[in-house]
């Protein structure tokens, strides 16, 4: 059973924001009104965190793309009263919208603030559905949503591989963010496979994971020369 993981090379990442846009488009993420956005209800599954270090003029700014970390020991799934968020055998932390009752416990539990809530019904009229990605369902008001590692792509990749009676090759399954990254800073693959690029990069001396001390075991691994 593969275990899907992402490696983000922060040394390569410029913080251009392409991953955010690719994600929004791929996953039919709603655009909230400007007023709502500015009170913190904006919806990005792939978010961008900006950090500042050092004293002027020796300032180091780093922008860090932040998807759901698909923790191996996810705090969010334990608190879900209805089994709407869970971890599957391949390590993906799923969010099943039709089960979600909108209690938002998982949002509180997530130390990485990776989840967003649908405060309003995104009004997608029937006509518009033809211009959306048909592979990703639309969410309704009152449910929590988050990055899925583009699990809908995995279904297709698996199907393609099964049709051709072969294994999924390294790099075949990539979320939208990694596919379009202009500096190829986002790698994706099976971290249990010692031949995969993701595994090799995760062994680098530059690798680290956010808030490792919490024991969440995130499957998004950052590479950075800086401490």
């Amino acid at each position: 059973m593969p275990k899907w993981a992402m490696v983000i090379d922060l040394d390569k990442c410029t913080g251009c924001g392409d991953c955010m846009a690719a994600c929004k488009l791929e996953n039919n993420i709603a655009i909230v009104s400007p007023e709502e956005a500015n009170v913190g209800r904006v919806m990005f599954w792939m978010d961008m965190i900006t950090t500042y270090e050092g004293e002027y003029p020796n300032i180091k700014v780093k922008r860090i793309p932040k998807p759901c970390f698909h923790c191996d020991n996810p705090p969010c799934t334990r608190v879900c009263p209805v089994y709407a968020t869970y971890k599957n055998d391949e390590g993906l932390v799923g969010q099943i919208y039709h089960r979600c009752i909108g209690c938002r416990y998982c949002m509180v539990a997530c130390p990485y603030t990776a989840k967003v809530f649908n405060w309003y019904e995104p009004k997608w009229p029937d006509e518009f559905k033809s211009c959306l990605n048909p592979d990703v369902s639309l969410r309704m008001v009152g449910v929590v949503e988050k990055c899925s590692f583009c699990a809908h792509r995995l279904i297709k990749v698996k199907e393609n591989a099964d049709m051709e009676e072969r294994e999924i090759y390294d790099g075949e399954y990539s979320p939208a963010c990694g596919e379009s990254c202009p500096t190829n800073a986002i790698y994706f693959g099976d971290i249990d496979n010692k031949e995969s690029q993701v595994y090799k990069l995760s062994q680098s001396s530059r690798s680290y994971r956010e808030m490792e001390n919490l024991g969440t075991e995130p499957k998004v691994i950052y590479l950075s020369k800086r401490e």
């Binding site: 599957n88 055998d89 799923g94 099943i96 369902s137 899925s148 699990a151 279904i155």
Partner: peptide, 8 residues
């Protein structure tokens, strides 16, 4: 019966 194999 993994949810993610059918639900998206």
């Amino acid at each position: 019966k993994d949810c993610l194999s059918c639900h998206m």
